[in-house]
């Protein structure tokens, strides 16, 4: 790697200052505030707080509703990540085969990424509405088969599908780029060695895509823990009976609806630690098995 050297250190400092300032103001400062709040009891309308130590955390960790939220979040994270990456991989493998018109559907597949989460939620609310559209016909034939308003697992399934749909595009771009960076001669050598299309995918393309796969795994898991608010808020508002009350949505609910700033701050800290721990785990145990060429 090429490095630039500065004769004067203060010039170097000056040039990184804007970036550091932005990171500090928008990341470290709010985080430190959240940590501070997590250890205090904040008054709902402001005007003073009281140091309570780990009381906020103790309350949360003994609350069965909180553990439900954690459980639902983990299911949501695993399911959306698996669904989004699986679909993205299949679509990318097809796009890479450059069948007729692939340029058009390549663009088509990237579009969903540009749609904001609330818009995704809103459209899926229409699509999955049990009393209108496609699902109303199904419900007419089999009454009660699809009811996300009353049935918690239906609601969670709906949120997972919407969340995955939004994340497919992002993974698709990376998978396609990874596939297209595999040298053509490798694929040809593999064909000469006698392996067909499916065998080539398994023996050649997938192993060579492993670094991309790992990157997307980390990003998708992180995203599904922290970036699901818009979809939940528009689709289910956490219901029914908190069946889709994901951790990130519960933070918002407790903080801004319940005005429990301190509890919400403690939840943010737990969520942050959880994501850090998961990422660390992935780097520690998954990355070691990856071959970087």
């Amino acid at each position: 790697m090429r490095r630039a050297y500065f004769k004067n250190n203060w010039i170097a400092a000056l040039m990184v200052a804007p970036q550091l300032l932005i990171i500090f103001v928008f990341f470290y400062w709010p985080t430190s505030q959240a940590i501070y709040w997590a250890f205090t009891l904040e008054q709902p309308w402001g005007g003073g707080n009281e140091w309570v130590g780990f009381e906020n955390f103790r309350q949360l960790l003994t609350d069965s509703q909180y553990w439900d939220s954690v459980r639902v979040s983990v299911i949501y994270a695993i399911a959306t990540t698996a669904l989004a990456m699986g679909m993205a991989l299949i679509l990318a493998l097809f796009a890479d085969r450059q069948l007729t018109g692939y340029k058009f559907y390549r663009v088509g597949l990237i579009w969903p990424y540009a749609v904001a989460a609330p818009a995704v939620g809103l459209s899926f609310r229409f699509i999955f509405n049990p009393s209108a559209g496609l699902f109303s016909y199904i419900n007419h034939l089999f009454p009660g088969l699809w009811d996300p308003i009353m049935n918690g697992s239906h609601a969670l399934f709906m949120v997972i599908v919407a969340g995955a749909w939004k994340q497919i595009a992002y993974s698709f771009i990376f998978f396609l780029a990874a596939l297209q960076s595999i040298p053509r001669s490798l694929t040809e050598a593999c064909a000469m060695d006698g392996s067909g299309v499916l065998r080539r995918m398994w023996d050649l393309q997938l192993p060579l895509m492993a670094p991309t796969f790992f990157f997307l795994l980390v990003i998708n898991i992180t995203d599904s823990f922290t970036d699901s608010f818009g979809i939940v808020d528009t689709l289910t508002v956490g219901g029914p009976a908190r069946a889709t009350n994901l951790m990130v949505y519960k933070i918002y609910e407790d903080g801004f609806r319940g005005l429990d700033y301190s509890g919400a701050a403690a939840q943010s800290i737990i969520l942050m630690l959880l994501v850090i721990a998961l990422t660390f785990f992935q780097f520690r145990f998954v990355e070691r098995r990856i071959h970087y060429s």
Binding site: S185, L186, E188, M192, P207, H291
Partner: peptide, 14 residues
């Protein structure tokens, strides 16, 4: 029934 040796060898890196 042909085998080919490529210019850049095209060995499977993994």
């Amino acid at each position: 029934g042909c085998a080919m040796v490529f210019q850049n060898y095209a060995l499977y890196p993994h």
